[in-house]
Amino acid sequence: MEKKKDVILPSYWYVISKNGILFIFLLLCILLSIITPGFLSWANILNVLRQSSIIGIMAIGTTFVIIGGGFDISVGSILVLTAAMCVGLQYKVHWVIAILIVLIIGALIGLINGFLAAKIHIPAIIATLGTMTIVRGLAYLYTGGYPLYVEAPDFAYIGTGYLGPIPFPVVLLVIMVALWQFVLEKTRFGRYACALGGNKEAARLSGVKVDYFHILTFVVGGLMAAMSGVVYASRLLSVTPLAGQGYELDAIASTVIGGTSVSGGEGSVVRTLVGVLLLTIIANVFNLMGIHIYVQYVVKGAIILSAVGFDTYSKFGQ
């Protein structure tokens, strides 16, 4: 009896639920390359990656927030405000400075989100619902409701340029994923984020400054949303205050499809990227096959439900 208790199952459900998304993704790619001619062409692959870059960068931040046990639906609004300011500020300052300013603004909004959630104890989804509305309003105020344009070839490089054969936004995405995956795995911040998302009270009683690190996850969320705003602005060189609506949902969907636990504590930036690619590919294939966009919503929703359902149901079983 005693022995049996000590030796424990490595739980292959756990392994599958952690990496299942990769298998599904690879399977889908193989399947699609067979039925859709042109899917595996270099041009199409780059296209998919480029389309993924904005949501991908945003979803990195979302991953940190969700791992830390939070939720952030304000990132779509942060994208539009920072994109608009990034364009608007260039009338007055150099584009590099404009970028720096909006990154700081994104981080500051994240700081406010984190403060509201961790210190004032507003449930994160409600706190960020509030800031989402406020920030969207600020975007309207800043733009006056009209699109802003800028002509800046240097600035445009971020969103449209190429580094060798590879689009720059894709390079940026890959670097960011690598960087933040490293932060998640190899720094105290990453470890503490997992710990406090897994069990905040236990983390606190282990001497972790939980509020500080909880807030920090939101700061990363805001910062990465601002970075995606910069890429957005640079790609289009024009921003309307309507932009970025629903982006937060795509970012959250990618994160949970990537296997990050909805209740926090575990997750991976790389797998979030796979989640982003999966959603983009589905959209891409539907376009290639000429299926109406309305169908895409239905399919996307079904995928989110199955991914999250798998996670929650397998946990409930234990």
Binding site: G198, N199, L205, S206, G265
Partner: peptide
């Protein structure tokens, strides 16, 4: 379960959690 351990984390991560700065 509620206050001492982070159950979903690996064992070694629980053991090093309070003193993580020593391992960096």
């Amino acid at each position: 379960k509620k206050d001492a351990l982070i159950l979903m984390l690996e064992m070694y991560k629980n053991i090093t959690l309070p003193t993580l700065e020593q391992f960096t």
